[in-house]
């Protein structure tokens, strides 16, 4: 029983801010932590709606396909995973792995959309003959792939691509002296890289409780959303 709970909770803390419901089932500890996780959920929901609105307003009418790709990419990194984390447990019940897979895949798809958009030349005039490096050739062995494999693939690839996009945004900030890019870099770092590190690196090392790791992942997510929202509005 105890093991069962532990094994179902560790991934919760990992990929994603978890759901209050499961926190209640899983934790053996303080109601305060569970309450805090709940609060971070509400904040995340509000921020992610704000971000979606900003992205829509920003893109509207520009007609630029690369800008659309960036907007959709950021949507998949911010709003969509937040909605998934709230909606799946509500509709499907306890589906931890499904939720992690859906949320992390959404982040990965968003990051890849951004990478493709920024690596595509701005305007290609007529018959430009130039070889371009292919981006991230993903080779998946043709063995039987279970949902666990997919979870682990999404888990390991997303932080890698997330680190690359963070680095691009950081360099964008350094080269162009652009404050919004600095906050965007921080946001992407907290949304796509830090939660995994917290779950697999620091959490177990510090011996954090399940509810504690869960809260850390949620806080990282909220921090990331806050940073992206600030970057879109004030920075």
């Amino acid at each position: 029983m105890g093991n069962e709970i532990a094994s179902s909770v560790t991934p919760v803390a990992g990929g994603s801010a978890a759901i209050p419901l499961q926190a209640t089932q899983a934790e053996g500890g303080s109601a305060l932590l569970v309450g805090l996780v709940l609060v971070t959920f509400v904040v995340a929901a509000v921020l992610s709606i704000g971000i979606a609105y900003r992205l829509y307003v920003g893109y509207r009418g520009s007609g630029d396909r690369s800008m659309l790709a960036i907007a959709v990419g950021l949507l998949l990194v911010t709003t969509v995973p937040t909605v998934i984390r709230i909606a799946i447990p509500t509709m499907v019940g306890d589906a931890t792995r499904l939720r992690i897979l859906a949320a992390t895949s959404s982040e990965l798809a968003g990051l890849l959309a951004i990478v493709v958009a920024v690596r595509t030349p701005a305007r290609t005039r007529r018959r430009v003959r130039r070889e371009r490096a292919t981006i991230l050739p993903l080779v998946i062995a043709t063995t039987v792939i279970t949902i666990d494999h997919l979870v682990w693939i999404a888990y390991s690839v997303t932080p890698l691509v997330g680190s690359y996009v963070t680095w691009l945004a950081y360099r964008g900030y350094r080269r162009n002296d652009s404050a919004p890019m600095a906050f965007l870099a921080m946001g992407i770092l907290f949304l796509t890289v830090v939660p995994t590190i917290a779950a697999f690196g620091i959490g177990p090392v510090l011996g954090a409780s399940d509810a504690g790791s869960l809260l850390a992942a949620s806080l990282s997510q909220v921090g990331g959303l806050l940073s992206v929202y600030y970057s879109l509005t004030r920075a």
């Binding site: 900003r54 992205l55 920003g58 893109y59 520009s62 630029d64 690369s66 800008m67 960036i70 907007a71 951004i114 990478v115 958009a117 920024v118 690596r119 030349p121 701005a122 305007r123 290609t124 005039r125 007529r126 430009v128 130039r130 691009l168 945004a169 360099r171 964008g172 900030y173 080269r175 162009n176 652009s178 919004p180 890019m181 965007l184 879109l232 509005t233």
Partner: peptide
């Protein structure tokens, strides 16, 4: 006309600032 390959970080900045 062949354009110079641009640094992806600059392109990212330009596109993102266009969105704001």
């Amino acid at each position: 006309i062949v354009e110079r390959e641009r640094d992806p970080a600059d392109r990212f900045t330009e596109l993102y600032e266009g969105l704001r």
